[in-house]
């Protein structure tokens, strides 16, 4: 593998994809331009940016959680963050349909953070033991999933909006959403990069990490918190786009190796590429009907993940 080369090529690829994201759409370029520049800049460009930011956030969240748990199955979905945000959003959409859409994002973030608090309370005596975290997370996610289903089934008439949100979609996302995501990522991405060495050491096992000067418990806490924050804002804006948090770190590891100094930026870019690609396909596959991007990430992500597994011998 050529990690350095990959790290240089990834942004180029992302840029090309972003440009095609602006140029491609249900309207061809000429019609779009004659309708005024608004379609390209206001609708498509902002949406492309949302896809990049949310994808990067989801990918990073996955890299952080996999670094903490040392388990390839770990993802923001597994630790219940997505479930918590989903329950909050579904509650808002179904029980308080009159509430302004602006409340969705804070509600979803609050739901994710509350879930995290509940999770930390449940594992409070286990020093954030990785296996424990995953098991408790799985149980918590199942429970939240059941609550969401209950809400959906008991409100059959308003179910559509909630379903689209739960699958994850970038429909109607614009500059307002960029404004929400950008400041968060500008703060969280450097913080994630600063964890790189400590996450590298954590991969050697708790004892070796502590012996090399990484405070294991503190590192786990920080990385977990970062993961939750990253996943929470991304999910709050775009809904529960699945598989990105799980697949991006795996793909990045295959391309640039296990050193987090390269893995973290690579994961962010791969997450961005995945969501952007899914959204472009969602827009152009069957116009005027738009597929939710989350459907495509799973549709492509799951078989791709299986392919990755055959390349990996470690797990």
């Amino acid at each position: 593998m050529y990690p350095r080369l990959t790290l240089t090529l990834l942004p180029v690829f992302l840029l090309l994809l972003a440009i095609s994201g602006v140029l491609l759409g249900s309207l061809d370029l000429q019609t779009a331009l004659s309708a005024g520049p608004d379609i390209l800049t206001d609708l498509r460009l902002s949406r492309v940016l949302v896809a990049i930011l949310a994808g990067a956030g989801l990918g990073l969240a996955g890299a952080m959680i996999q670094g903490v748990v040392r388990n390839p199955l770990a993802s923001p979905d597994i630790i219940g963050v997505t479930g918590g945000a989903g329950l909050a959003a579904t509650t808002l959409l179904l029980l308080f349909p009159g509430v302004a859409f602006g409340w969705m994002i804070p509600a979803a973030i609050a739901g994710a953070l509350l879930t995290m608090a509940l999770m930390l309370w449940l594992v409070r005596n286990q020093d954030l033991n990785p296996a424990r975290l995953v098991l408790v997370g799985v149980a918590l996610s199942a429970w939240l999933g059941a609550l969401i289903d209950w809400l959906l089934v008991s409100h059959p008439y308003q179910v559509n909006a909630a379903l689209v949100w739960l699958t994850g979609s970038l429909w109607g996302r614009g500059w307002d959403h960029v404004a929400v995501l950008l400041p968060w990522l500008l703060v969280l991405f450097p913080l994630a990069l600063m964890m790189a060495l400590r996450l590298d050491l954590l991969a050697l096992g708790d004892e070796a990490a502590e012996g090399l000067g990484a405070n294991v418990l503190q590192t786990r806490r920080l990385a977990l918190l970062l993961s939750v924050a990253l996943a929470a804002v991304s999910v709050a804006v775009c809904g529960a786009i699945s598989f990105v948090g799980l697949v991006s770190p795996h793909l990045a590891r295959l391309l640039v190796g296990g050193s987090h100094r390269r893995l973290i930026p690579a994961t962010a870019m791969i997450g961005a590429v995945l969501v952007l690609l899914a959204d472009i396909l969602a827009r152009i596959l069957a116009p005027p009907i738009e597929l939710p991007a989350g459907v495509l990430t799973s549709l492509i992500g799951a078989p791709y993940f299986l392919f990755l597994l055959t390349r990996y011998r470690g797990w």
Binding site: R70, D200, A203, L204, G205, E207, A208, E210, G211, L212, G213, R253, L254, G257, G258, S259, Y312, G314, W315
Partner: peptide, 20 residues
């Protein structure tokens, strides 16, 4: 970190990380 400059530990079952 200070202690890690004075003493080193080889654990019983260290994990060899993937991709390093």
């Amino acid at each position: 970190r200070q202690v890690a400059r004075k003493l080193a530990l080889l654990p019983q079952a260290p994990i060899t990380p993937e991709g390093v």
